[in-house]
Design a protein around this nucleic acid. Sequence first.
DNA 1: ACCTGAACACCGTTCAAGT
DNA 2: ACCTGAACACCGTTCAAGT
Lengths: 186, 186
Amino acid sequence: MSARRGQPLTAEEIYAAVLRLVDAGGVEGLSMRKLAAELDVNPMSLYHHVENKDALVRGACATVASRLRLPPDDGAPWQEQTRALARAYRSIAQSHPSLWSYVNRHPALVEDEGGMWEVFNRILVAAGVPADELPRVRTVLYTFVSGFLSAETDGLLGELGGAEDFDAAFEGAVDLIVAGLEARYS
Amino acid sequence: MSARRGQPLTAEEIYAAVLRLVDAGGVEGLSMRKLAAELDVNPMSLYHHVENKDALVRGACATVASRLRLPPDDGAPWQEQTRALARAYRSIAQSHPSLWSYVNRHPALVEDEGGMWEVFNRILVAAGVPADELPRVRTVLYTFVSGFLSAETDGLLGELGGAEDFDAAFEGAVDLIVAGLEARYS
DNA sequence: ACCTGAACACCGTTCAAGT
DNA sequence: ACCTGAACACCGTTCAAGT
């Protein structure tokens, strides 16, 4: 039996607990049984609120992704908007590193986070990328940024050396991308 | 009891089986018990040859990494050597995608693969990167390439769209890196 | 010295039985 | 209608007991 009050679990309650457990021990460290214990509930009761562990992670993702705040379409130079978008994305990744790292390598879980691709497109057009190259360039640059962030959140950045100040290294990485775009498309 | 001949397991035999299982079902799909079955051996016998599952993966890595063939130091332009190094690294990653993907996000398992960093340094010096920026630039570019490769091996590249021809997308990605280096350091 | 069965402490998930 | 205990098919690893 559970020591809980009569009210059933809310989605908010569940996902707050999921994020707590994932932050503490990664998605691999999350288990239905631990989550149930965290919520003071019978493990099997969880299946009444969520289909399975995968759906749990997907829901946690949606919760976090909804917090992405995209840079506005003011008249700022595309270089500055690129940096703003990259920083906004990084801050989401860093808010729950283990979750982001896991989701980023599970294609089925990656979804359009609040119109990010549209914003990215707009910026690349401003940078002079021709329409037919746009999807490829967008995808490649996304893999570059997510590669850096994976290295950062997985601890590889520190291991590889040369980047004691991660913020500075990130800015340098974005600078290199901007320089590459300028050289090829401006 | 085992149906094996008297001879004990060899490391070659074990790692060949590990790679077979990892290729088929990823590192997450590898288990000591399945490996033992694959080798027709008692699960507990494996612990006589290897410390634990982690050591197993580390050994498999070393096996694969030893196959990396670095580009020679001929007088080729640094742009061409950059492409050659990137291609050599990609072909290793692609030879056992699941293993590479797993190892790449476990910092403790990433090791210098046959002097790759030295070769990378030499190329970047030729590209005009100043000595004090070298470690940072090397690390950032590594995260870019490994980000692309992770996206490719994890199936994210196809999911994101814009890259039906992965080889072409990879060349485009390296082109962008080269353009960035030329713009900032040449 | 080498090998291994049973056991321990975990998983995700199903399902029949309870209220 | 909702909940849950027992069960199933898995894990990695330990350890005492066997040869």
